[in-house]
Design a protein around this nucleic acid. Structure first.
Lengths: 312, 312
DNA sequence: CTGAAAGCGCTTACAG
DNA sequence: CTGAAAGCGCTTACAG
């Protein structure tokens, strides 16, 4: 059942049907009523593909992330999807695994489908998306990076100051009298490096040497451990408890992301809240403005906060 | 840059360009080489929308779930996305929140976009997708439910026997000498009901009365708690530990899903593994067969397994 | 082996 | 207020 069938049944031209469908132009009340009745009667649905053919838009955006199973990405992608859905767009999900070749494949696919915009979630993408080939694929559409930066005229970024986040953790531990403070780093993304830098700077600022001795069970310590991920912190906490150390009495632990993982720990992890929902919302707003009004916006940096738990 | 531009530059007709693009029909080696050169030179990408217009397919499927932030759904959706990506399809993600109106909105949207198939992830959808309106939207496309059943000719289902899963947990606790066994139920989906039924049946089978007394701190118990979700079990575990009870010495705890939550717990939760990756893979295989060959397959039921942890 | 033409289902100037 | 026609960018019989 297409627009021609409706036009025939209603005894009007397809142009008129299109007008009532889109509430555009002028249609007499009588004609409109007749067409609408036929429309309802036949449960007509316009083809988004045919519309896309003329408008060159399917009202679809692509979200590329590393792995949706990682809670932090899930929270970000969730909010992006919900917000775009409210605005009348569908979201294509791509789990790239942080792999360059896969990212390229996905970008080619969504390029052929002429998505209206692309959201890149994760700091891996600043590294991955280098090179002429990538830039060509990213240059035709509005792009926004969550937690990353890309040097393209049509790309915006929403970042959280990870470095500041880790320094918050250090200052917090210092304020609570911890002397030997350690940092556990994982992965090797730009974000992970910023965190490490934040740690080292905050340590220097507080005149603390980088301690490298071993934690010994039973020893009464005024130690603190800062981790770049809640999952790492949860692992550290588990190891400490198994080794018979008391947390936070002997050792304090601070995680990063303020995720469910943090809340599940016993005791509950103190963590750095890096506000994925806010990041996601800003990404959507930037991208939408860029799509609908092709306006130029500046990129945004958010400040994380410390979420006090029981491990510090 | 479209197929007409290419044809002009190559001095051939658009039909010939289309032939080399799709490796269909016959093209002389010389012509093919010339066209391919022009194609490469201009970095030509065919429009998937225009192709969709004639093939009536955008090679896209929709995945409707409750909330991608729930790890179990994330694992399922992840695998579905990866498997479809390998097969040349893009995946539209929809977080319905388990809400009927939202589900309807999403189904209308993906219906207009003429997706090739729909995957419904979660047992809520058997209830939600009742009614003429829903069935009409679901009748035009191949549909597969993960963890649910739908009485439509074009709908398949891949389910895990949740009831059996919970009974596994009960038998396990009985075998370890637990006498007072409790079940903590959450939510109110079909799946949650099956789990409760599985519990009650297994209890009866073992001649155990349904205990309803209160756990008291300090009391030496031979008790066991079965939970319908790992998150619930993690909460129960936390509460037990805070109340000064020892797990598993005094109370055993068994969760459901064998998720990261289970592994993060200290001690690690014993849990029921309901194999979301296997479910997802089967969903994709069923849906793909249904799309590509419009073959009729029967629905599948998987058996969960007990994953031994340290809380039982 | 190759091209002209129709068709996919819409929207949108342009006339009237 | 309404309709005829062109156009969006492809694929696919059908001729030759």
């Amino acid at each position: 059942m297409n627009i021609y069938d409706i036009a025939k049944e209603a005894g009007v031209s397809i142009a008129t049907v299109s007008r009532v469908l889109n509430n555009k132009g002028t249609v007499s009340a009588a004609t409109r009523a007749r067409v609408e009745a036929i429309l309802k009667q036949n449960n007509y649905t316009p083809s988004a593909i045919a519309r896309g053919m003329v408008s060159k838009s399917m009202r679809t955006v692509a979200v590329l992330t590393v792995d949706i199973r990682v809670p932090h990405y899930a929270r970000t992608a969730y909010t992006i999807e919900r917000e775009f859905s409210r605005r009348g767009y569908e979201v294509i999900l791509c789990n790239t695994g942080g792999d360059r070749a896969e990212t390229l494949r996905y970008l080619q696919a969504v390029n052929q489908k002429q998505v209206d915009g692309i959201v890149l979630v994760g700091s891996v993408f600043d590294t991955i998306c280098q090179g002429a080939e990538m830039e060509k694929l990213l240059s035709g559409v509005p792009v926004v990076l969550a937690n990353g930066k890309l040097d393209l005229p049509n790309a915006y970024s929403v970042t959280v100051d990870d470095k500041y986040g880790v320094s918050l953790a250090v200052e917090h531990l210092v304020a609570r009298g911890r002397k030997n403070i350690y940092y556990i780093k994982d992965r090797d993304t730009d974000s992970a490096k910023s965190k490490r830098d934040g740690f080292l700077e905050a340590m220097r600022r507080n005149g603390l040497e980088f301690a490298d001795h071993v934690l010994e069970a039973g020893e009464t310590l005024a130690s603190g451990i800062v981790c770049g991920e809640d999952l790492t912190a949860a692992g550290a906490l588990k190891a400490l408890l198994r080794a018979g150390l008391r947390v936070p009495e002997q050792v304090a632990v601070v995680g990063f992301n303020n995720s469910d993982y943090a809340h599940l720990c016993e005791p509950v992890l103190t963590s750095i809240d890096n506000k994925p929902e806010q990041v996601a919302l800003l990404c959507v707003q930037l991208l939408e403005s860029s799509i609908e009004r092709s306006e130029a916006y500046s990129s945004v940096v958010l400040q994380p906060e410390l979420a006090q738990g029981e491990t510090s």
